[in-house]
Amino acid sequence: MFQNLGEMMLLFSRTVRSLPLLWRHRQKVFDQFFEIGNASLLMVCILSFFIGGVISLLTGPVLVERGLASAVGGLVGLSMCKELGPVMMSILIAGRIGSAMAAEIGSMRVYQEIDALRTMNINPIHYLVMPRVVAVAVALPLLVIFSVLVGWGGGALVAATNPKISVSFQSFLVNLKEIVTFGDVANGLFKSFIFALVIGVVSCHQGLQTIGGPRGIGRSVTKAVVNCIVLIVILDYFLTRLLL
């Protein structure tokens, strides 16, 4: 994986340099963007609801026991927007969208479609990679906003209905508002933006690297998803450190 890091950086810099062509390829970006939304919005909601719920469930009783009922909202709010929303959603998107990108580009590679593009003097980076990277870089932060809101909702619902917590909806939200700042949310969105670039570049790179028929495509998909998740988790630590 790490010997490819250099190639990935190169692909990333080429993608960035092709950004002036963004307007020309806007249709492809839109298509990718809506595909990402379509494929993952429902999952994002379900996942986030239960993630928010489970943090509430785990921390709520402990805090209430120690007379810190007023901290439940803040704790759920912060962990959702600074860590769990961005990281969990990025992992979800790596599995759902990164895999699809690697598979699609990989099969184009194997079945010579990319060669055909090159003979037509169409740059595969402009045609395939850039629209996908841009689409996921825009879509993922938006999905994270969604995820954070739904997660807060899930946390609040559990806090209000679980007899061991019973922090009302209202006091949960008041407390959340007190503790979570706009900066915290922005912090999470920034992380997810970086993770989105990782997903786009790693998956497209893996797709372009594919060799050797259908089995090669399968291998590329697995590698793309695993590499994305590993990189996301490692980067998460350093980004958190940096943004502390």
């Binding site: 699609e104 099969s107 184009m108 079945y111 010579q112 479609e113 060669d115 055909a116 593009l117 003979t119 037509m120 003097n121």
Partner: peptide, 19 residues
Amino acid sequence: VMEEYRLAMVFQSGALLNS
């Protein structure tokens, strides 16, 4: 060269873009 001249290839398998 690719900019200057128009070249084309018909691949053995066709290599159409499936999407």
